[in-house]
Computed example of a mutant assay.
Amino acid sequence: MSARVAVVGGHGKTGRAVVEVLVGRGASAVALGRADRDDLAGALADCAAVYVIAPNLHPEEPAYVAETIAAARTAAVGRLVYHSVASPYVPEMPHHLGKAVSEDLVRRSGLAWTILQPGAYLQNLDLRGPVVGVPYDVDVPFGFLDLSDLGAAAATVLLGDGHTGATYELASRQATVRELAAEQGLTAERVADPGSHPWLTAMFAYYDRHGLPVGTLPLRALLADRP
């Protein structure tokens, strides 16, 4: 019988990437969205594992994660994997701090847990050209993560053994935005901050000064037996 795995937040781009790989590896993937939260424990029934993705820029992510943990306990889910972020404890980025607090809740949950800390998605960059514009310095270092690699890493820890109590940084490669653009024959330039959300503005300001370096070794180790 195939493993039944729930993906809370399974309808967004991150969740879809995880579901796709789970299905490809023979698991029965259950994508859960906002409509399922009224009876989340019921939705998690008979699931061997759950992958937890909070909505982007959720104002109360720790509460969201705590609610999911409680539902997983009620449903007797055997394994919980939390989708966090690289460098969760960064006081200058409020949404990162929410994930740092959530990580603490996961570690104290009493469940068999694993935490993934992804870098910035490669897919968030518009590489169609001719100019790649981002609202921060194009020469600061990043650890970029391809969504397909994220899905593969998540499926590995959800379905495999030996990952309980582990926290993995995830990046497919290290580069600057300028380097990525140049590889496509494009140029890169810093553009004005669109000012869409104060947390994003804070994130761009942090990136402008420090980038977001992330190591690539954990991902390579997780996917060592994959093409």
Rank of each mutant, 00 (worst) to 15 (best):
M1E: 15
V8M: 08
V8I: 15
G9A: 07
G9S: 09
H11D: 12
V19C: 08
L22Y: 07
R25M: 01
S28V: 11
A29S: 05
R34K: 11
D38Q: 14
L40T: 06
A48D: 10
V52L: 15
A54M: 08
V65Y: 03
A71S: 09
A72D: 01
R73V: 12
A76W: 10
V77H: 12
V77R: 11
Y82A: 10
A86E: 12
P88S: 07
P91E: 09
E92C: 09
E92R: 14
M93H: 11
G98Q: 14
K99M: 09
V101G: 03
R108H: 12
G110N: 09
L111K: 00
W113N: 08
I115G: 00
I115P: 01
A120K: 13
Q123H: 12
D126S: 13
L127R: 06
R128A: 15
V131W: 01
V134Y: 02
Y136W: 15
V140F: 06
F142V: 03
A152C: 00
A153V: 06
A155I: 05
T156R: 14
T156L: 03
V157D: 07
L158K: 01
L159R: 05
L159K: 03
L159W: 02
G162P: 02
H163I: 03
G165W: 03
A166Q: 15
T167L: 10
T167W: 05
R173Y: 13
Q174V: 08
E179S: 15
Q184M: 12
T187A: 15
T187C: 07
R190G: 01
D193I: 04
G195F: 05
G195W: 02
H197D: 15
H197E: 06
W199Q: 14
T201N: 11
M203A: 13
R209W: 10
T216L: 05
L217T: 14
L217N: 08
L219W: 10
L219R: 06
L222C: 06
L223Q: 10
A224M: 05
